[in-house]
Measured scan of single mutants.
Amino acid sequence: MGFKLLSKLLVYLTASIMAIASPLAFSVDSSGEYPTVSEIPVGEVRLYQIADGVWSHIATQSFDGAVYPSNGLIVRDGDELLLIDTAWGAKNTAALLAEIEKQIGLPVTRAVSTHFHDDRVGGVDVLRAAGVATYASPSTRRLAEVEGNEIPTHSLEGLSSSGDAVRFGPVELFYPGAAHSTDNLIVYVPSASVLYGGCAIYELSRTSAGNVADADLAEWPTSIERIQQHYPEAQFVIPGHGLPGGLDLLKHTTNVVKAHTNRSVVE
């Protein structure tokens, strides 16, 4: 069995187990497998329904001669939608809004960016022009300005110390501490036991640490421990890039980060 097929099978099995364990909360999309990078042309966006009122959005972007996937989250909030992270750029984010209108038909009224990198804030200006209120932590807003990236308009308070959590509509926002970046936030959907790890969490097929220019490698494993301790009931975990899975993604990420750190020390 090929690795790609095995990865998709694991996603399907995880979703099936969740649907059985929580039949009222989960209505997993039966329309197909989780979209992969090879299936999404740059400039297009796919939506994948995880649970009743919960979707991931998947886009792709060219970077350094390669094409990478990027995940975000959409959560229903009454007759409105909360968006977590842009679709990595203005063109993708405009396509995301169009796809949401086509498939869901509810307005996106608020959006949260989970850290300051372009795959999370690139497209904020498109959201703002569409009347979406954009939010991020003060740290993310400051770092985005320093980096020359787009800056969300509103500040999220109460997320300055490791372990801080605040309720934001249908989700809980959690600051686990520094990891992929010093400002990275985690998003949890309690009604569906869905954990969105953003770039602080890796997919299972990833074996290298990737972009760690703004990471705190020493603190990252401790931050992941905080996530595990705060959300032990999480059933569906979405990484910032690639295929979702279960809580095993947290341990896998820790292993990859520690291996990278150990290699760096040896070198």
Rank of each mutant, 00 (worst) to 15 (best):
S223D: 02
L159W: 02
E172D: 07
S161L: 12
W220G: 00
R206V: 12
A25Q: 15
I20W: 11
L47N: 03
T114F: 04
G2S: 13
F26Q: 14
V237N: 00
A192N: 07
G53N: 11
H180F: 01
S193D: 13
Y202G: 05
V166R: 10
D64Q: 09
G122Q: 10
E172Y: 05
S160C: 06
T60R: 08
S162L: 10
S208Q: 11
E101T: 11
V124Y: 03
I201L: 11
G158K: 08
L13C: 15
A59L: 05
D119T: 00
H117L: 02
Q103G: 11
D164R: 08
A200Y: 04
L83H: 00
G169D: 06
T153H: 09
A87M: 00
V45C: 03
I84R: 00
G177V: 03
P170G: 06
G240D: 05
S62K: 08
E157V: 12
C199Y: 07
V189G: 01
E203V: 06
P69Y: 15
A209I: 08
V265Y: 12
T114R: 02
H252D: 03
A59R: 04
P176A: 05
A179D: 04
G131P: 04
T109Q: 10
G105V: 07
V257W: 01
S205M: 09
A15Q: 09
V67E: 15
T207P: 09
R128C: 07
A94Y: 15
D164G: 08
V37F: 15
V121M: 04
L247Y: 15
V266D: 14
V187L: 03
T261R: 12
E39M: 12
E219Y: 05
L143K: 07
Y68D: 06
V257L: 12
H57C: 01
K4E: 08
T253R: 00
S161W: 10
L10G: 13
S208Y: 10
P138C: 05
F26R: 14
L73C: 02
S161T: 14
Y196E: 01
A259S: 13
M18D: 12
D214F: 06
A179V: 07
H117Q: 05
I151W: 05
D248H: 08
V212L: 06
L10H: 15
G246R: 09
C199D: 01
W55Q: 01
V194A: 06
K258C: 07
A133R: 13
P69K: 08
K8D: 13
V126S: 06
E225Q: 13
I151Y: 05
D64H: 09
S31A: 13
L83C: 03
T207I: 11
G131E: 07
G123F: 02
N184M: 00
D183H: 05
A21I: 13
L82K: 00
A59H: 07
N255F: 10
E80F: 08
L6W: 10
T114V: 01
A209F: 08
L250P: 06
G32H: 11
E145V: 09
A19V: 15
T14C: 11
S38P: 10
P239I: 01
Q235Y: 08
L47Y: 02
E145W: 12
D216A: 07
E101K: 14
I238M: 07
A259V: 10
Y188C: 04
A25C: 14
D29T: 10
T207M: 12
S62R: 10
H154E: 10
G122Y: 06
G245R: 02
S22G: 12
Y135M: 02
M1R: 05
P244S: 05
V121D: 04
A129P: 03
L106Q: 11
E39L: 12
G158N: 10
N262T: 12
T222W: 11
I74K: 01
G242D: 06
I17S: 12
H115F: 02
D118H: 07
E233T: 12
L9S: 12
Q103K: 15
G78N: 11
A136H: 04
G163W: 04
D77K: 05
H180S: 00
